[in-house]
Design a binder for these strands. Structure first.
Lengths: 338, 338
DNA sequence: ATGAAAGCGCTAACAG
DNA sequence: CTGTTAGCGCTTTCAT
């Protein structure tokens, strides 16, 4: 238990070799005999030697650190992705710096710069409501986007097939004889946009006119979802008067949960009078009663693909642009709310 | 938009001064004229100069990076704390490396070492079920624990007043004429231990014998909570047969939520037949219906105090041990479940 | 008020 | 197979 920090120099001295040799052995870059190797390793161990990553990074231009930009780690879906990525990356030798951007472009840019200061080797950017045509970060380092369309098109993206998910939900509702309504939030993320698009497309194909009247936008963001019960109740009350069999496509599980809660409070039967389908597959869809039918995103796969893609990018910077858009399949999980 | 990285040397060259002067100006460490200062600043700006934190860290022995060890960022309570800390620290110039230990001591140690390799200036350790008497990390750098009793007693701890919270709940139940039962998980965190202790103490004081019969331990950890409905239903069924007015102290909001759900499925009225009180003040306590009475932890204050404490520790390493145990007050939020 | 120079801990030529 | 040397980008004496 030496409190003093031991450097590669100390190891070299104790082992009667040069620092170069120690370095080679520690990094296993060849050019050394296994005999000295074992000796050096022992000394390093005994001394409790540990690399100074700062020095390594400075010299080798590789910090072995990667950054993650995430809108809000408090959002279950994001926190799951971040966790998976962090674990995956750590297992391959990288440390991760996680930054909450709060969906603010300014913070995002600020964080991006700081991450560059840290000489990160790669970057994962999750979602963020890229306000239309805004100049989203132009990265000059290997970057992978999750659930966000980048500005330039030689960037890499991993994303659930939101469009397909939206399509499945809408058609499910329709085939169930429901009049479909979409309830969403103000958050205009890439994911949202795709889901809405699918909704509209299906409605159009099925001959609906004025399908904008089938869309309600709550005055809130996607990360929080505790308020505005009244707004929702008003919507449901209005809908219920039409005496139709109603099917609600909630833009995510949080909203679905709220819809169901509001319905219960209005004594509306779910799924009999109103059937509700969510999106994401978060714990809310499971704990709700009735449990929520939802489109489940494959968080593990998304995270894994994103990391793999990033690692690949980092290895061969120069490379013909291969497939750089991964669509991860989604899955309809039918439960009690539909 | 220079893609090439510009170093302090470039700035020096362009400004016709030495790197030393540039460094002084950039860090505002004095010994320069305001005239050259403005010139250098302009050049630095024009060139888009940015510090290489690795180099700074290597030289100055301060990485301006701090580490956070957290059991599971997917747990809402933890993610809130981590987010707050991260934001607070960033605003004071520090970057944060977040590590999910998954409540594994091995991973914890591994991460700790890696964090040291990164030359972190300070460390925040959140919870983790320190299995009895286990050798929890001995840190040689400024460290603050959140919700965990450290091994040596000159460490700093910030924690909600879990004991007080447990006391309030138990007495509330008692005063409401309920026979109190505690339902907990297998996770033996410091927080849990305190809450349970308070429960026992109050029961003892109120003349209960064999109060261990008032405690049920579910076969699960605190981070997940979707399974084992059956276990819970069995417990509730047993309790209900006693024809008492029952009051349940759920060790956290997740459990409280599950208890209520199970009760509903058994057609047990909450709070009439069984009243339920949770702990933490997470979103689950709000979204549940009936909404859950709970002890709310002051996440913002906890995070803020922890960061402030850490920063203070980092500044003056040598200091008489001042107060190093912060108990953050908790608050009973009475809602519908009790 | 400024510059020269040393050096943090490490890796990467280059020699041998 | 191993050692010598240079230098990554920066801060910090020590001069002047």
């Amino acid at each position: 238990m030496n409190s003093k920090k031991v450097s590669i120099k100390d190891v070299a001295l104790q082992s009667d070799v040069s620092v170069a040799t120690v370095s080679r052995i520690l990094n296993n870059t060849g050019r050394f005999s296994s005999k000295t190797a074992t000796r050096v390793m022992k000394v390093a161990n005994d001394l409790g030697y540990r690399q100074n990553r700062l020095a390594v990074g400075l010299r080798s231009k590789e910090s072995n650190t990667i950054g993650i930009l995430v809108p809000d780690i408090t959002n279950e879906f994001f926190s799951k992705i971040v966790k998976k990525c962090e674990q995956f990356l750590f297992s391959t030798g990288y440390s991760t710096i996680i930054c909450n951007t709060d969906r603010s472009e300014e913070r995002e840019r600020e964080y991006y710069r700081t991450l560059l200061d840290h000489q990160i080797d790669g970057l994962i950017i999750i979602s963020t409501s890229a306000s239309q045509g805004s100049k989203t970060i132009e990265t000059h380092i290997p970057t992978v986007f999750i659930d966000r369309k980048p500005s330039s098109d030689n960037e890499s993206v991993v994303s659930s097939d939101h469009y397909e998910g939206g399509r499945i939900i809408t058609e499910y509702l329709l085939n169930d004889g429901r009049v479909p309504y979409l309830i969403m939030t103000k958050t205009k993320s890439t994911a949202t946009i795709e889901r809405v698009k699918a909704f509209k497309d299906v409605l159009q194909k099925r001959g609906f006119k004025k399908f904008n009247q089938h869309i309600y936008s709550l005055n809130m963001t996607s990360d929080k979802f505790l308020d505005s019960d009244k707004e929702l109740k008003d919507i449901l009350s209005t809908l219920i008067e039409r005496k139709e069999k109603i099917g609600i496509f909630a833009i995510n599980d949080n909203i679905a949960y709220m819809v169901i809660r509001a319905a219960k409070q209005l004594d509306i039967e779910v799924p009999k009078t109103i059937s509700v389908i969510g999106f994401d597959g978060t714990s809310y869809s499971e704990i709700s009663s009735p449990q929520i039918t939802t489109i489940k995103q494959n968080v593990d796969l998304i995270s894994k693909r994103a990391c793999e893609l990033l690692l690949a990018k980092m290895q061969k910077k120069n490379e013909g642009k291969k497939q750089n858009f991964f669509k991860i399949p989604v899955e309809l999980v039918v439960r009690q709310s539909s």
